[in-house]
């Protein structure tokens, strides 16, 4: 049945959009507030997945505990990156980028040393499936990812629009020096952005760990997707990152289902090029960052 196939593919796309947007939004937040492109973002996602491997699959803690630990652990990795790499290189965005590439390799090496290069098997959290019809189903672990993205991104939106530290974050993204003249500590906003951005990547990795193959190089494909998405959305625009994540996920999932995955990758990249030609600042981008 065509309708059922379309519905099922739509559900798959919503799932993909959910974890892609968690990763892309964190990347954009870090870029907006700190002005650096965090190439290690995919490895933060990977670190979140390994938190679940270690705590849930190997040590038998409840899945929720492993998720929370993944969020906090990867958030702290973000804080460590801010302190050790980005703060000393604050006036040197290229230096920050290179340092983040170095950190990416360190994290990959640590994952290999700690867990080996093999793919980790994470037992499913639940076998439950929501059955809409014979051919339209949604595995409950995927539903968790969708719900987590909805809740976390709404919470982030409320934080940025309604709280004092949210205004401070947006102000320092728009003009760090003018923000400092309002008494906003640039170091503090950088730490907040880094913790949230890294934490979102970590929780995306933790939540998807039972659904994907966990290995030390799993960050690679998500970072490529995230870069496409933030370029299409307009580098620096959080709304753009979400919209572009949804658009990319739908296009990619539908093309994969109806043709194949390689064609989907090519279509995704081509769409990015078209957007860049028609609107070089991306869909929601302005000349400024954030």
């Amino acid at each position: 049945m065509m309708v059922e196939l379309l519905a099922q593919t739509g559900l798959n796309a919503i799932y993909a959009a959910s974890y892609i947007s968690l990763i892309a939004v964190g990347l954009v937040l870090i870029f907006g507030v700190m002005g650096v492109i965090n190439f290690a973002h995919g490895e933060l996602y990977m670190a979140g997945a390994y938190a679940v491997v270690a705590l849930y699959a190997d040590l038998g803690f409840p899945f929720l505990v492993a998720i929370a630990a993944g969020l906090v652990f990867v958030g702290m990795l973000g804080l460590a990156m801010e302190r050790a790499l980005f703060r000393p290189l604050r006036d040197n965005p290229l230096g920050g980028l290179v340092a983040s590439i170095g950190f990416l390799m360190v994290l990959q090496a640590l994952a290999v040393m700690g867990f080996g290069v093999r793919m980790e098997h994470v037992p499913p959290v639940t076998q439950e499936v929501i059955v809409f019809s014979d051919k339209v189903r949604l595995a409950v672990p995927r539903l968790y990812v969708i719900l987590a993205a909805l809740v976390l991104l709404s919470a982030l939106w409320l934080f940025l629009k309604k709280t004092r530290f949210g205004w401070a974050l947006r102000a320092s993204a728009q003009d760090p020096e003018a923000a400092a003249l309002q008494g906003i500590s640039i170091t503090q906003t950088a730490r907040i952005a880094m913790f949230i951005g890294a934490g979102l990547a970590g929780i995306a990795g933790a939540l998807t760990a039972p659904l994907v193959s966990v290995n030390p190089h799993m960050g690679h494909s998500v970072i490529v997707t995230a870069f496409i998405v933030i370029i299409v959305g307009g580098v620096g625009s959080l709304e753009g990152a979400v919209v572009a994540s949804v658009a990319y996920a739908f296009v990619h999932t539908f093309v994969t289902t109806f043709w194949d995955g390689v064609i989907a990758d090519i279509v995704g990249l081509s769409l990015m090029l078209v957007v860049l030609i028609v609107r070089p600042t991306g869909l929601f981008g302005t000349a400024d960052r954030a």
Partner: peptide
């Protein structure tokens, strides 16, 4: 001037009272 272009007028004023 260096106002925050993508904050509303009121949000700009509130950042002044940040501390």
């Amino acid at each position: 001037r260096r106002i925050f272009p993508e904050l509303t007028v009121e949000e700009n004023l509130r950042t002044g009272a940040f501390l």
